[in-house]
Design a binder for these strands. Structure first.
Lengths: 340, 340
DNA sequence: GGAAAAGAATGAATCGTTTTACTGAAGAAC
DNA sequence: GTTCTTCAGTAAAACGATTCATTCTTTTCC
């Protein structure tokens, strides 16, 4: 009743365990009829290779870890799926950790990944874990940063030019005739947020519009959007913005919901633009304009960079792939003139 | 430069490897000052236990697999997070597989989980994998079914009474004065869909309303909702339903979007109710009524049932936990009288 | 004070693979 | 006909933890 192992297979097939391994891994040629006997034995015994033993011997696993900030955000699950697709082609699989933007959870998963000797790691870091990542790499698990290139030229990375993204968003709002722009978003410690804001602010300045009003919050979740919208509605009419740039689509959804339920017309009274271009924003009852980040492609590319490092260890040729952000115009900013 | 192992730790601390293990696992008492020496050595060497070796010896891993139908559906990620919380309390972690409703992907993950000798498995099965699950269990990885109890009394399960959920939804639509109900949903091979439909149909019948119009599709994704809505709009006015019951919230969102962009007023002209009560439906610009399933709690409970089996192997005391569905009324069905 | 029990620590055996160095056998080359 | 390759397959040595059965010290008890 105990699970069969290679020894059992070898005995049944009348060969040595080494031969079984060669069949399993195609590491050395095996005569066709011998291979068939082995495969038959595997089939008959229902043998499933014990990955722990394999891994112990080889020193590395066939799974790759990915750590995301928020599994509830479709942007991150799309990245994960892109990565999964690329890895599947090489017979590797993905194990997903969700830090939830909490540093202690991030550390817990790093421990896990390190104990597992993962083949590599894709990560959007939360806390100050760079030295930890260096160690992981020095122990044979290369690391690729996703959507966060910052102070880390020493790791390969994929990211989107958030400065340009912020500029695109603000530029578009100005283009459709808006003059009083507000930014609603997460903490500026998050590099992406800071850059999106800076891009927007610079654009507003350069085009001589009124200064950007900034509402800063602690997280990037939708409830932030609702609170932000309420703060905007509390302003005197002359102060009230006629356009909102939300740091991501989750926030934009919150803003939209709060505004419409307060009777504000979108986009006639206030236009809204988000960031990420997630499915639910595109399909909101008033579809939300957004700055698209090619999530799946980013995930795929990150996985490919990682695979390169996995397959050529020691090659310190770190690459940084930047994707251009893309403006997607939808009803939440289009089809209406500036309010009078 | 090679990673430190227990032997190195033992040497530095001046103890035997057995003692190191005892400190690591608290399996046998160790004198406090000895333990301190060991911990210091671990710290100094940056020792991280090799999980493959541990697992090979112990025969089982400390991670649990979960296989979901669709990671893009927040309902499933919420289940996963609930499970993760419960497992974290016991020092276990979760590895997530996404079948995407495709049987071959499901099999791929089952192979992976079996090779990994996972401590247990939570699964919403797609294909015909019951015998596979039996084998997994007979080899030491218990299995709990999530949201699918069907022909499998021989596994513990958590699920929601979908018959009652369907009845609640249809009953509510009738209660607010609707008379021409339509159902838009995924394939009836999926048990949940079939039961929601049956619950609705029975209720409509019992209350003497016009028979339910059924639009059946192949998947449960939002685009299905848009197509369904267009089919409804193509009907002659006298035939056109005044209420839609969508098999899940993703579909409801699609219906809502298609209807409003066609100028149909929701709920005045057509009311909409969904299923799952996901965040994005609750926060749509017209918040969508829904039948809530307590996703996180379901995940937590499933994990607890699994832990019980893990800790008492051989105990064939399979339990089936049913959660009651709950009607959540929002703007998409409320606050409007029946259309004239 | 001596026997028994309890407490700490030891070290070898073990888990199931992969891999390496090696052995034969069969054919090729001269 | 001897020597060289090539080709298949073997057997044993890893990999790094945990867990036994032991040994060596203390402490307890009468």
């Amino acid at each position: 009743m105990a699970a069969a192992n290679v020894r059992d297979v070898a005995a049944l097939a009348g060969v040595s365990v080494g031969t079984v391994s060669n069949v399993l891994n195609a590491s050395k040629p095996v005569a066709p009829e011998t291979a068939k006997r082995v495969l038959d034995a595997i089939e008959k015994l229902g043998f499933i290779r014990n990955d722990a033993a394999r891994q112990l011997r080889v020193g590395q696993s066939r799974t790759v870890g990915i750590m995301v900030l928020d599994v509830s955000n479709p942007f991150f699950t799309d990245i994960a799926r892109g990565a999964e697709d690329a890895l599947a082609l090489t017979g590797r699989s993905l194990i997903l950790g969700n830090s939830g933007e909490e540093a202690h959870r991030e550390l817990g998963y790093l421990d896990l990944f390190e104990e597992q000797r993962v083949a590599g790691l894709l990560i959007t870091p939360v806390g100050d874990v760079l030295s930890r990542l260096e160690r992981l790499r020095s122990r044979g698990s290369p690391v690729v940063l996703v959507d966060r290139h910052e102070n880390a030229r020493s790791f390969s990375s994929v990211s989107v030019d958030d400065l340009q993204g912020g500029a695109l968003a603000a530029g578009h709002l100005l283009d459709v005739g808006r003059t009083r722009l507000a930014f609603v978003g997460g903490p500026q410690q998050v590099l992406q947020v800071a850059e999106r804001l800076r891009g927007a602010r610079d654009t507003v300045l350069a085009r001589g519009a009124r200064p950007l009003r900034v509402l800063e919050f602690e997280t990037m979740r939708a409830d932030v959007g609702r609170v932000g919208a309420e703060q905007l509605l509390a302003l005197a009419p002359s102060e009230r913005p006629d356009a909102v740039f939300a740091a991501n689509d989750l926030i934009a959804l919150g803003v939209l919901q709060a505004l419409t339920s307060a009777g504000v017309r979108v986009p006639d009274d206030i236009a809204i633009i988000g960031y990420d271009d997630i499915y639910f924003a595109a399909n909101a009852a008033i579809p939300i304009s957004s700055i698209r980040q090619p999530a799946a492609e980013m995930g795929r590319t990150a996985a490919e960079l990682l695979l390169e490092e996995i397959e050529h260890p020691g090659l310190k040729d770190y690459r940084h792939v930047f994707f251009p952000p893309e403006l997607i115009v939808r009803a939440s900013t289009a089809g209406a003139d500036a309010p009078h």
